[in-house]
Design a protein around this nucleic acid. Structure first.
Lengths: 243, 243
DNA sequence: CCATTTTTTTGACGCTTCGTCAACTTCCTG
DNA sequence: CAGGAAGTTGACGAAGCGTCAAAAAAATGG
């Protein structure tokens, strides 16, 4: 009984439609303007049906976070396949993170809500482990590249350093940039215009600080980034460009 | 009529008591378990009285965020007075951020809630500008040091770089580390134990990447950090240590 | 094609929480 | 101490979450 019945197919599509709807609402008004009654209304179903898909409002937000996190994991894994030096490959991951950051501006918010409510047991364990898998895939893509770099001697670990620590540093830098955009901190500082090139420059500085060869003074990583985007993420870049 | 009447004094103290209460609740159960009724109850006043102090639940959270942000600004400004090289002074700011991070684990959450609700106009404009002032003070302390470093030639700006961009990078790195702790991302990775030394190491790597002299290979910044904490933040470090 | 069972959908209902406001109490001043 | 100002109260309306018995739709079988 594997072939999905038309009814089951319909239910599956409706779930995605509800998520799309919730995503739009989140973007337009934040989670203040997101109510289960309104979602049911606009989706053209009753509230009970929405609760057939999601255990709670928090679970719906969590499902949204998991969906975008899955796309991020996919982007990261694609970035890891980039043909180039280990540092170019890591820069491709950075490009993936920046694209994701542009394409899913709501994600940071959703993930924050996710953790707050999963801690209060409003989210089924299954959903939590799905999110952990996404994180694991992202982090695995990055640490894999770092390990290759160590093996090739392009990255030499210092006392007490590990590939995990280096990847956490990069991850933190990116998450912080996401957060700053969401919180609109320092929005008025004239020296800061577009957050994406700024983030890229800072990530390169951090890689330089780790001594990851070849350094940014010896190689044009802006060009490498452009090549990675063109080869790996043409569609995503186009979508990010026109939104 | 400047001398505060005993009644006014009592009201002022009650406001702080309510904030303390809210802070405790936030830490214990997140903002799920934070209700205005419960706060009124435990503070021994009626709900109407609580609303005399705060325009809404969101405003209360915002007031909490502003209070801790003010303490952070004070810590940053104190750190900027550290006697040492410009890079040692910037490391002292890092130490201040780490102490704050330990002393006010709820802050990131409160600030997130702050922005979400200020955007929905649930928070009075006066409170928003108070928060902006705190950010401005923190950022000003950091950029001031960076400017000194440029003046002394210990930091040489490259093409397209500015002190603001460098400080934003450091800020992002720290915010990301805060966020990661709150979200409990990668909590299971064995290579990552204590987030504070990890953050410090990554911040030093970023400073190295910016070429801020003297580099961490030439100077012991762990020792400098310890001296800064001992000289500037003995009480705070003690509080952070036993909690 | 109809009867029966299973699955899915519905929306009214109970419950909780926010924020208000008219009535009440306490405080201050002449 | 009288009377007005300042502060406090808690019942109330509104809104949202999640439930569940009943209704509707779909699947199954004779």
């Amino acid at each position: 009984m594997r072939p999905v019945s038309p009814k089951q197919q319909e239910i599956r599509e409706r779930e995605q439609a509800i998520l799309d709807l919730a995503q739009t609402m989140l973007l337009e008004q934040g989670d203040q303007g997101l109510s289960m009654d309104r979602i049911a209304d606009e989706a053209g179903v009753s509230k009970g049906t929405v609760y057939q898909h999601f255990a709670s409002k928090e679970d719906l937000l969590a499902a949204l976070a998991v969906r975008s996190a899955g796309i991020r994991a996919e982007l990261f894994e694609r970035a890891a396949t980039f043909k180039g030096t280990t540092r170019e490959r890591m820069s491709a991951i950075g490009a993936a993170a920046e694209l994701f950051f542009t394409l899913f501006p709501h994600h940071e918010h959703a993930e924050h809500a996710f953790k707050a409510s999963s801690h209060a047991q409003k989210v089924p364990a299954e959903r939590i482990s799905a999110m952990e898998t996404c994180h694991f895939r992202c982090f695995g893509a990055a640490t894999g590249i770092a390990r290759d770099a160590v093996a090739k001697g392009e990255l030499v670990l210092r006392e007490g350093q590990s590939v995990e620590q280096i990847c956490v540093g990069l991850w933190n830098l990116h998450m912080g940039a996401f957060l700053m955009r969401d919180l609109e901190t320092f929005i008025d500082i004239p020296a800061i215009t577009d957050p994406v090139p700024l983030l890229f420059a800072n990530a390169q500085a951090l890689l330089d600080g780790f001594g990851w060869q070849p350094l940014s003074t010896q190689h044009d990583y802006v060009a490498a980034r452009a090549r990675a985007v063109a080869e790996l993420f043409p569609k995503e870049a186009k979508a990010a460009g026109r939104s």
